[in-house]
Design a protein around this nucleic acid. Structure first.
Length: 816
RNA sequence: GCCGGCAUGGCGGAAUGGCAGACGCGAUGGACUCAAAAUCCAUUGUUCGCAAGGAUGUGUGGGUUCAAGUCCCACUGCCGGCACCA
C-alpha cells in the first residue's frame, strides 16, 4: 500500500486548513439582519450519542452531505446555521459506571472529546461555538423547564397501568422502544410490570401530529410510518346494555354497519367491569383466566396469538339495534389499551372474531354480502363458510337491508346518536408516552411529592435540579431509580407550603434532550430562556434535517410533539420544527452486510483518512451513489476519488494562461457549472462529482491551464474537497479563505454546443446519425436524414408511413 | 397478513418517454521503465461474424406509444416498518 501513497501532501494541508478555519472562526454563524429571511438556512444533522465504540465510515455520511451543502450555500450568499452537539445522556455510560464505578459524566465527556477529534479531521464546517451536550446542567435546566410547562398544561401525568419493562436495562420502555416484543436497545424480551410512572399525553396531539405531516417536506416512507404509528381510525362508540344490570358496556367499532351481526362481546382481562359482570358460577374460571393473562408476557399475548383463548363471564349484553342478548366473554385478544377495552364481536366479518367463534362454537350471522351477489339481492343467506371482512351490501339487518357499507356506517351512527346508544368516534393506535426511567444518568424529573399539596413542580427559578452524586449507579430493580436511595436528596421541602416533601426519583428518557436540542443551538449560552425568541424567529424552522431512518417514529415524533407544545405556549414561531427531512442511506460493509463489529466488516474512517486523506473520503462517500440509498463500501473504489484529487494537484503545477478557454472546453465549463450548481443544490452529489471529473479530465489534456477555468473549477470543488481547494486557492495568490468566495455563474447560452448529433431511427431502431447545427428546422432535419446512404438503404422498397422529428434530438421514420 | 421501498454490465452507479450503461472501480492490451509502482493511451453488456455489420439486452409476463429502464396492469425476488389496534 505504500506504493499507492498519494503525491499530494494531504496529511499536511488538511490539518493546516482545519486549524485555519478553527482559529479564524470561519464558520461562525451570526444573526445578521442584513440577510433577509430567504437568505438564511438552518441545516441540521442528527446529533450523535458519543459511544465508546468510535465511528465507522457510515457515520459521517450525513455529516459530509450537509457540510457540502452548507459550504455551497455560503458561497451562494446564504447565512447558514450549521451546529453540532451531543446526545449525552444514555445507558451505555451508566452501565459502564455500574461495572467500573467511573462516573458516567467522566466517560461521556471523554467520549465526546474522542468523537470531536474523529469528526474534526473530516473538515466539517460546524460552528463549534454553539456545541451543546444534553447532560450538562445548563442544558438540562431547560429540558426540565419544558417538562414543567408540559406538566402545567396537564400533559404529564402519573399512572400505574402495566408498562413495558426491560429486565436487562432495568427500566420501563415507551411503546416506540419495543420492537417485536424486544427491547430496541438490547434485544431482551420485554415483560409487563406494574409500577408508578410518568406519562406524557402525546395522544392529545395525535390529530395534529397526523394532519401536520402534510405541511412538511419529508420522505413519504417516514410520513407513512408516522401515520401508521398514530393509526387513526374512524368508527363508532356503541353502548350495549347489560342484562339484569343498569351498567352499560361501551365498545368501539370501525364497522357499526355490522351491528346486526354481533353475536357475542369480548372484554379485555384488565377491563374494570370484569368483577361486576362475572356471575357466581363463572367466578372461579374468570379469575383463573385473568390471572393467567396477567402472567403472560406481551409477546405471549400477541405473537403466539394464533390460538385464541377465552372464558365466558356468565353475563349478557343487549344489542341496541335489535335488543338481542349476546354473551359477554373475556379474552386477551382484546387489548385494554385500545378503544374501550371491549368489543362487539362480528365473526362473519372479522377474522379474529371468526377464529374465536369457531373455537368456542359461538353463532355466526352474515350481515354483509358481496355487491351483486344473490344474498345481497334477497337480503339474507345461510351460515357463511368463510369470513368476509370487506365492504358490501347489508343483509340480515332488518330495515337496513340493501344499504351499502359506507352509507350504512353513516346512517347507523346517526341513528345510534339520536337514540342515545352511541356516537361517531375516532381512535388512535398511538399511546401516551411512557416518560419516566428508573435509572441514574438522565434528567431528574423536577417534581416534588407533598402530602398536603400533592405533586408540585420545582419552582422555575430553582432549576436546574441537578443530578446528585450517588454511591451506587445500579438501579434498584424494584422500580426505583438509584436516586431513591439518597435520603438527603429525596427529602426536601414543599415549594408551596414549606412542609416536608419528597422529590420525584425517576429520570427522563434519552429522548427528552433530543426533543429540543435544535432550539438550544440557536442560543446555547442563554441563561434566562431556553433560547431568545428573536433568534428563534431569525433561524427557525430547520430548513434541512439529515439523519437515519431509525428515528422515524421515535425522536422525530417526540420532537414534533414537544415543538407543538412549545408553539402552543407561544415560545416558538412554527408548529413544525423540521421543514425538510432527508434520510441518508446505510453504509454497508464490503460484504454487503450491515457494518458491525461482530461481522468484522467495520471500516474505520481514521484509517482511510490516514491513507487517502479526508478530502478523498468525503468525495468518495458522496460519489458512491445517491445519498438516500444504502450501498456497500469499497476499499478499492476510493482510489478513483483519490486520483481525481491528485489530478487537481497535478494541474496546479502546470503553467497558467491568461487566455480564456475556447470552443468545446468553454462550453463544457459552463455546462459543468450548471450541472454542479443544480446537483449540489438538490443533494445529488454523485453526479456533480462526475461532472467535475469530466471537466478536469478535459482541461488536463492541455499543457497549460486557463486561469479562468481553474478558478472556476477550484470553486466548484471547494465544498467537496475543501482542504485541497483552499490550498490551491492560496497557491493562486489569494490570502482570503476560499469558503467566502462567490460561487461561479454560468452563461446558459454557452451551455449548449453549436453542433449536435442527431440520431436517425427506422421503426424506432437506431440506424444512423449525423451532425447538424443547433435548432435546425424540422424539415431540414428530415431532409438531412433522408439523404443519408444508410437510411436510403433501409427505406429501399418500403413506404414511409410517418416521420417523427424531435428537434436537436432525432428523426424517426416509420416504414411499412 | 398489511403498509412502504428497491430491482440496470464483473462491482458502485448514470439516464426531462427520444443514442441504455455517463462517471468511477475492476479487468485486458499497449506506452514509459533494467524492472516495478505511479502515470498515460486503447478496449471492456451479451452474442453471431475474419471483417464490414447484425442480433439481443435494464427482475418476469402482458399492455400503451412512432419510440419504454422510464408510463399502465399482473407477477417474482430482496430490504425496511407494522402486526389480535376491533
Amino acid at each position: 500500500m505504500e506504493s499507492m501513497m498519494a503525491k499530494y501532501p494531504f496529511s499536511e494541508i488538511e490539518p493546516k486548513w482545519q486549524k485555519y478555519w478553527d482559529e479564524h472562526k470561519t464558520f461562525r454563524a451570526v444573526e445578521d439582519p442584513a440577510f433577509p429571511k430567504e437568505k438564511r438556512r438552518y441545516v441540521l444533522d442528527m446529533f450523535p450519542y458519543p459511544s465508546g465504540a468510535g465511528l465507522h465510515v457510515g457515520h459521517p455520511l450525513g455529516y459530509i452531505a450537509t457540510d457540502i451543502y452548507c459550504r455551497y450555500l455560503r458561497m451562494n450568499g446564504y447565512n447558514v446555521l450549521h451546529p453540532m452537539g451531543f446526545d449525552a445522556f444514555g445507558l451505555p455510560a451508566e452501565n459502564y459506571a455500574i461495572q467500573t464505578g467511573t462516573h458516567p459524566a467522566v466517560t461521556t465527556f471523554a467520549n465526546v472529546e474522542r468523537f470531536k477529534k474523529q469528526i474534526a479531521i473530516l473538515g466539517l464546517s460546524y460552528d463549534w461555538d454553539r456545541e451543546v451536550s444534553t447532560c450538562t446542567a445548563d442544558y438540562y435546566k431547560w429540558t426540565q423547564w419544558i417538562f414543567i410547562q408540559l406538566f402545567k398544561k396537564g400533559l404529564a401525568y402519573e399512572s400505574d397501568a402495566p408498562i413495558n419493562w426491560c429486565p436487562s436495562c432495568q427500566t420501563g420502555l415507551a411503546n416506540e422502544e419495543v420492537k417485536d416484543g424486544e427491547c430496541d436497545r438490547c434485544q431482551t424480551k420485554v415483560t409487563r410490570k406494574r409500577i408508578r410512572q410518568w406519562v406524557l399525553k402525546i395522544t392529545a396531539y395525535a390529530d395534529r401530529l397526523l394532519s401536520d405531516l402534510d405541511k412538511v417536506d419529508w420522505p413519504e416512507p417516514v410520513k407513512a410510518m408516522q401515520r401508521n404509528w398514530i393509526g387513526r381510525s374512524e368508527g363508532a362508540s356503541v353502548f350495549f346494555g347489560i342484562d339484569g344490570s343498569s351498567e352499560k358496556l361501551e365498545v368501539y367499532t370501525t364497522r357499526p354497519d355490522t351491528l346486526f351481526g354481533a353475536t357475542y362481546m369480548v372484554i379485555a382481562p384488565e377491563h374494570p367491569l370484569v368483577a361486576t359482570l362475572t356471575t357466581g358460577a363463572q367466578k372461579a374460571a374468570v379469575e383463573a383466566y385473568v390471572d393467567a393473562a396477567a402472567r403472560k408476557s406481551d409477546l405471549e399475548r400477541t405473537d403466539l396469538a394464533k390460538d385464541k383463548s377465552g372464558c365466558f363471564t356468565g353475563a349478557y349484553g343487549i344489542n341496541p339495534v335489535n335488543g338481542k342478548k349476546v354473551p359477554i366473554w373475556i379474552s386477551d385478544y382484546v387489548l385494554i389499551s385500545y378503544g374501550t377495552g371491549a368489543i362487539m364481536a362480528v365473526p362473519a366479518h372479522d377474522e379474529r372474531d371468526w377464529d374465536f367463534a369457531r373455537k368456542f362454537n359461538l353463532p355466526i350471522i352474515q350481515v354483509v354480502a358481496k355487491e351483486g351477489s344473490e344474498a345481497a339481492r334477497i337480503g339474507t343467506c345461510g351460515d357463511p363458510d368463510e369470513c368476509f371482512a370487506e365492504e358490501g351490501i347489508a343483509i340480515n339487518s332488518g330495515n337496513w337491508n340493501g344499504t351499502p357499507t359506507a352509507a350504512f356506517k353513516q346512517a347507523i351512527s346517526d341513528w345510534l346518536e339520536k337514540n342515545g346508544h352511541g356516537r361517531k368516534a375516532v381512535n388512535y393506535k398511538l399511546r401516551d408516552w411512557l416518560f419516566s426511567r428508573q435509572r441514574y444518568w438522565g434528567e431528574p424529573i423536577p417534581l416534588v411529592h407533598c402530602p398536603k399539596c400533592g405533586i408540585v413542580p420545582v419552582p422555575e427559578d430553582q432549576l436546574p435540579l441537578t443530578l446528585p452524586e450517588v454511591q451506587s449507579y445500579a438501579p434498584s430493580g424494584n422500580g426505583e431509580s438509584p436516586l431513591a436511595l439518597i435520603d438527603s436528596w429525596v427529602n426536601t421541602e414543599c415549594p408551596v407550603c414549606g412542609g416536608k416533601a419528597k422529590r420525584e426519583t425517576n429520570t427522563m428518557p434519552q429522548w427528552a434532550g433530543s426533543c429540543w436540542y435544535y432550539l438550544r443551538y440557536i442560543d446555547p449560552k442563554n441563561s434566562v430562556a431556553f433560547a431568545d425568541r428573536a433568534k428563534i424567529d431569525y433561524w427557525m424552522p430547520v430548513d434541512l434535517y439529515v439523519g437515519g431512518t431509525e428515528h422515524a417514529v421515535l425522536h422525530l415524533l417526540y420532537a414534533r410533539f414537544w415543538h407543538k407544545v412549545l408553539f402552543d405556549i407561544g415560545v416558538v414561531n412554527t408548529d413544525e420544527p423540521f421543514q425538510r427531512l432527508v434520510n441518508q442511506g446505510m453504509m454497508l460493509g464490503e460484504d454487503n452486510q450491515k457494518m458491525s463489529k461482530s461481522r468484522g466488516n467495520v471500516v474505520n474512517p481514521d484509517d482511510i483518512i490516514a491513507e487517502h486523506g479526508a478530502d478523498a473520503l468525503r468525495v468518495y462517500e458522496m460519489f458512491m451513489g445517491p445519498l438516500e440509498v444504502s450501498k456497500p463500501w469499497s476499499t478499492t473504489g476510493i482510489v478513483g476519488s483519490s486520483r481525481f484529487l491528485e489530478r487537481l494537484w497535478a494541474m496546479s503545477e502546470k503553467p497558467l494562461t491568461e487566455a480564456a478557454p475556447e470552443g468545446e472546453l468553454l462550453r463544457l465549463m459552463h455546462r459543468t457549472i450548471r450541472k454542479v450548481s443544480d446537483d449540489t443544490g438538490s443533494l445529488n452529489f454523485n453526479t456533480a462529482i462526475s461532472a467535475m471529473m469530466v471537466l478536469s479530465g478535459e482541461a488536463n489534456k492541455a499543457e497549460t491551464v486557463s486561469k479562468q477555468l481553474w478558478t472556476v473549477l477550484l470553486r466548484l470543488v471547494a465544498p467537496y474537497a475543501p482542504h485541497l481547494a483552499e490550498e490551491l486557492w492560496q497557491k493562486l495568490g489569494h490570502s482570503q479563505s476560499l469558503s467566502a468566495e462567490a460561487w461561479p455563474s454560468y452563461d446558459p447560452g454557452l451551455c449548449e454546443s453549436d453542433e449536435l448529433t442527431i440520431v436517425v431511427q427506422i421503426n424506432g431502431k437506431l440506424r444512423a446519425d449525423f451532425v447538424s447545427g443547433k435548432d435546425t428546422a424540422k424539415e431540414e432535419l428530415e431532409k438531412l436524414a433522408l439523404a443519408l446512404p444508410k437510411v436510403q438503404e433501409y427505406l429501399q422498397g418500403h413506404e414511409v408511413v410517418k416521420t417523427i422529428v424531435v428537434p436537436n434530438k432525432l428523426v424517426n421514420f416509420v416504414i411499412r
